[in-house]
Amino acid sequence: MKKLKIILFVAIFSLIGCCIGIGLGWTSKKPVRHNFVIKARQYSYDPAVIVVNRGDTLNFKLVSMDVVHGFYLEGYDIDCEIHPNQKTFKLRHPSQGHFWKDTTDFTVIAKGYGKFKYRCSHTCGTMHPFMQGEMIVEPNVPYHASWGGFVGFMIGMISMFYLMIKKKL
């Protein structure tokens, strides 16, 4: 019973922290269109980080600067194969199997909140498994919630010990 009380006590602080974090980090902007040209090279993308807002329309053109690379966008069912010196690249939706089609670009609507990585899905060299970029969809709710939640958790733990010393918990 005491254990449950303690867990609840700390959880409440964490939850309050989460809410404050989300509140402080919340942004709401009118959706706009972005055109990105992503250049892939061993073992990074340029731009390495793109920041967009939820609801924005994102148009991607993909270029390889050296060898064959991939572009797997987490959470968006997008996987591409980019060959060097070509204006087109291959695109597929992994959930629909291996049906590749040639294209010059693709468009998605930014959904969800937080960080979505784009990773190389085509073995491109020794460091291939670590080749990745980041698309941050604002507001980055998980990040702001974690900040607030962790600080709230710490305050909750410290308060818990205070109350334990004072024999109130």
């Binding site: 090279r41 073992y43 990074s44 993308y45 390495a48 460091m127 670590f130 980041e134």
Partner: peptide
Amino acid sequence: LGSSGILKDWVN
């Protein structure tokens, strides 16, 4: 786990 190409060049 990061996206920096410069760092990957440094360690490699």
